[in-house]
Amino acid sequence: MRILNICAYTWAIGGPARIIYDHTTEVLKYGHQVDILSPMTPGEKSYPVPEGARLIECKRTPFLSKVYREFSLELYAYLKKNIHLYDVIQIHGIWHFGSLAPFLIDNHVPKVITIHGLLDRWAIRHSQWKKQLVTLLYQKNLLGKADLIQINNTDEEEDVIQYLGYRPRNMVIVPNGMKMADYTNLPPKGTFRSQFKVPADKKLLLFMGRLNIKKGLDLLLPAFAEYNRQHPDTILILAGPDDGYQDKTEAFIRENGMESYIRMVGMLTDKVKKAALADADLFALPSYSEGFSIAVLEAMTAGVPTLVSDRIGFGDYLRQYDSACITPLTVEGVTQGLQKTLQNSSYRAEIAEKAFNMVKENFDIQVVAKRLLDEYVKISKAK
Rank of each mutant, 00 (worst) to 15 (best):
K381Q: 08
L28Q: 09
P232V: 02
M178C: 07
I235P: 07
M300T: 00
S380Q: 11
I113W: 01
S309K: 13
D310L: 04
E51Y: 15
D182Q: 12
T24D: 05
T191V: 03
K340L: 09
K131C: 02
R169D: 12
F252R: 05
Q128T: 12
P110A: 00
E332P: 14
N185Y: 14
I213C: 12
K378D: 03
E26H: 07
D316W: 11
I105Y: 05
L100H: 07
N212S: 11
F207C: 09
P187K: 07
A12E: 14
L37P: 04
P305L: 04
R254W: 14
M40L: 04
L205T: 05
T41F: 14
W11Y: 11
S46T: 12
V265Y: 11
F207H: 06
A295S: 15
E350Q: 13
A200R: 13
V308A: 05
S287L: 04
W129Q: 08
K360V: 08
L238F: 14
T135P: 06
A123W: 12
P16A: 00
D247S: 13
D120L: 04
R167M: 08
G98T: 00
L133Y: 15
P328E: 07
A239E: 08
I161D: 13
V368W: 04
T269P: 08
T135K: 09
L186Q: 04
E70P: 04
S72M: 04
D35C: 06
R18A: 02
F196Y: 09
R319W: 13
L342E: 13
T191I: 01
M1E: 02
K131S: 05
A299S: 00
